[in-house]
Design a binder for these strands. Sequence first.
DNA 1: GGCAATTGTTGTCGTCAACAACAATCTTTC
DNA 2: GAAAGATTGTTGTTGACGACAACAATTGCC
Lengths: 168, 168
Amino acid sequence: MTASAARADGRPSPRKRAGNGAASRDVTDDVGLDALAGHAGYAVRRFQIWIFQDFIKTLGEVDIRPTQYSVLTVVGANPGLSQMAVAKRLGIERARLVHLLDSLEQRKLVKRIKSRKDRRSHALHLTAQGETALAKFKRLAAEHERHVEAKIGRANRAHLLRILAGFT
Amino acid sequence: MTASAARADGRPSPRKRAGNGAASRDVTDDVGLDALAGHAGYAVRRFQIWIFQDFIKTLGEVDIRPTQYSVLTVVGANPGLSQMAVAKRLGIERARLVHLLDSLEQRKLVKRIKSRKDRRSHALHLTAQGETALAKFKRLAAEHERHVEAKIGRANRAHLLRILAGFT
DNA sequence: GGCAATTGTTGTCGTCAACAACAATCTTTC
DNA sequence: GAAAGATTGTTGTTGACGACAACAATTGCC
């Protein structure tokens, strides 16, 4: 895999010569992108955008976005966590989590309970409504995962998860 | 419904299921996250954040962000493209590309040349300065790619690129 | 020639990461 | 036990980014 290193030296092979102004046709369909093909970040970025859009669409009927889903899942699996703990675990800032929880609490899905052991912190719990809602969200999320499988293939998805297991 | 894990797929879950309670002092280190472990989107998201941060840091000395790099690369490989063509190819909005190009043009890396064949559009070119700068950016980007290899392994990175080739 | 479509541009809105500051509350240290 | 320092939740700001809408200039189509 040469990636960009091999082409950094001189003029590579500009396959698609788009000469001056000759772009009036349908060049947009066929723009050489060789230089980006070897960049993991670019591929991952495009893939992540696709995945999130499918997730948002698939969970659209319940109006749950990926970040909200991750919060609900973590709180559901670990009731009583503090906001700090959840933020750290999900890699989001506690400042951001505040708004997330404001929204989720307003929708009666989670509740903040003042901890008596550390009166600075809030113990997070799902409401009863939140539990049943999360069950439905998980079904929809599983459907979304099937879309991913359909897109990149079952084996590839499994391999992808294994490769990226260290980041979860 | 206990909502403890996504049992949709009967994964044996050999992972780190933290014994509950034992971590009441430093919960942050060991929060059960099994429910998210099977979600491709979450892993990809975290990975993408890691990749971008490393890219931004590695290209920090030249102050080039991933999106800027992708624009420069495409324009460098396909001189004369219109803004619309670049935007379409990179999957960004032309409205957004305007600001990107404003910045890059201000830094004398690219130039907008009014096309005489279609006086609505601009033909995009790298400046001479932009060409040499891009060469350096590509060397740094290659270094970044080596960081990725070091993180997930050479073979895994190659496989990842193959899996996601359809999204580039 | 007239009307629809395209291109670049400007603007708004909402999401998200990164900081900074703050009050309330632990925790440490003397 | 009190002062000093750290932590938690909160508010606010900044900037990158995606999605949309509107607009003038220009082009293509009929």
